[in-house]
C-alpha cells in the first residue's frame, strides 16, 4: 500500500527564536531551517513500515516556498521514494494545508497519511485532524505505536493520564508523538541517492484550493520575562523563604 507523509520546513529546534523589533513576526533571515521534528518521526515510521513489508511506496509532500525542496530531499534521504512540493509563497494556515493535502491525496490515493502532531513554529496541532475531516477518514492522533493489519491500524495514543489504544479503518490519518520512534541519521550515500529521486511541483491554483489566510496576525510580541530570584545557601534557608516570604507552604 501507498503511504503519504507531510513535512514542514521550520526554524531548527536548536535556534533561539527572536521576535522582530517591529512586531510583525520572528526573525527568519539567516536562521537555520530544518524539518519539523515530529514530521521526521512521521517519515521514519513510514520507512519502517516499508522495511517491514507493509508499505510499498512512500510519497513525501511539503507545502510552501521553493526552499521546501531541501526538506523534501531530507525526507527522500531518510527513505521516501518520491516527493511532491505544493509551491506557494503565501502564508499557509493549517486549514489551507489540509485542503492542499486533501487534493494531493485524491490524486495519489494513499491508504495511510502520517503527519507530525504539530509543527514547532505555530504550534497549532490541527493539520492531521483537519485532513481526516475533509477526506471523511478515520484519525489517530498523538501516536506512540502503530500496527497495521487486515485493513485496519491499531494505534496506541499518548493521552492525558496515560495511553489509549484505538482501532481505525484504512484509509486513515495518523499523527506522531515523540515516542513513536527515533529517526535514523541520514547517511551520505542516502543523501546522494535522494538527489536522483523524483520531485514533482504543483501549484495550489492547479489543485483548485483557495489558500487565503483566515487568521490575521495583528502582532507578535515577546512574552513577559520572569526575573531571576535569589540563591539561598541551604534547604533550611529555602524553607524559611517559602514559609515566610513567598507564603506558599
Amino acid at each position: 500500500m501507498k503511504v503519504l507523509v507531510s513535512v514542514k520546513r521550520v526554524i531548527d529546534y536548536n535556534v533561539k527564536v527572536r521576535v522582530k523589533a517591529d512586531g510583525t513576526g520572528v526573525e527568519t533571515a539567516n536562521v537555520k531551517m530544518s524539518m519539523n521534528p515530529f514530521d521526521e518521526i512521521a517519515v521514519e515510521e513510514a520507512v519502517r513500515l516499508k522495511e517491514a513489508g507493509v508499505v510499498t511506496e512512500i510519497i513525501a509532500v511539503s507545502c510552501g516556498p521553493q526552499a521546501c525542496q531541501e526538506t523534501l530531499r531530507t525526507a527522500l534521504a531518510i527513505g521516501a521514494d518520491r516527493a511532491v512540493l505544493v509551491e506557494t509563497n503565501e502564508e499557509l494556515q493549517p486549514l489551507a494545508v489540509a485542503k492542499l493535502l486533501k487534493a494531493v491525496c485524491q490524486k495519489e490515493s494513499p491508504q495511510l497519511v502520517i503527519l507530525g502532531k504539530q509543527a514547532i513554529d505555530d504550534d497549532s496541532n490541527q493539520t492531521g485532524q483537519m485532513l481526516a475531516a475533509l477526506l471523511g477518514w478515520s484519525q489517530a492522533t498523538f501516536a506512540s505505536k502503530v500496527v497495521i493489519a487486515d485493513g485496519k491500524a491499531q494505534v496506541t495514543r499518548e493521552v492525558d493520564g496515560g495511553l489509549e489504544t484505538i482501532s481505525i479503518k484504512l484509509p486513515a490519518i495518523v499523527t506522531t508523538d515523540l515516542r513513536l520512534n527515533e529517526p535514523r541519521y541520514v547517511t551520505l550515500p542516502n543523501i546522494m541517492k535522494a538527489k536522483k529521486k523524483t520531485m514533482e511541483t504543483l501549484k495550489p491554483e492547479a489543485l483548485g484550493v483557495d489558500v487565503a489566510p483566515r487568521l490575521q496576525t495583528l502582532k507578535v510580541s515577546e512574552p513577559p520575562k520572569r526575573k531571576a530570584g535569589v540563591k539561598v545557601p541551604d534547604p533550611k534557608a529555602l524553607v524559611d523563604k517559602l514559609r515566610n516570604e513567598a507564603k506558599v507552604i
Binding site: P94, Q126, Q129, M130, A133, Q139, F142, R214
Partner: peptide, 23 residues
C-alpha cells in the same frame, strides 16, 4: 486544550470550514 480537546476540535473546525485558533 486537553489531549481530547486537541484531538476533536480541529476535526469539527475543518468540517465547518473554519480555521481553528489553538491554545
Amino acid at each position: 486544550a486537553t489531549s481530547s480537546g486537541k484531538n476533536i476540535l480541529p476535526r469539527a473546525a475543518a468540517l465547518l470550514d473554519c480555521q481553528q485558533i489553538s491554545e
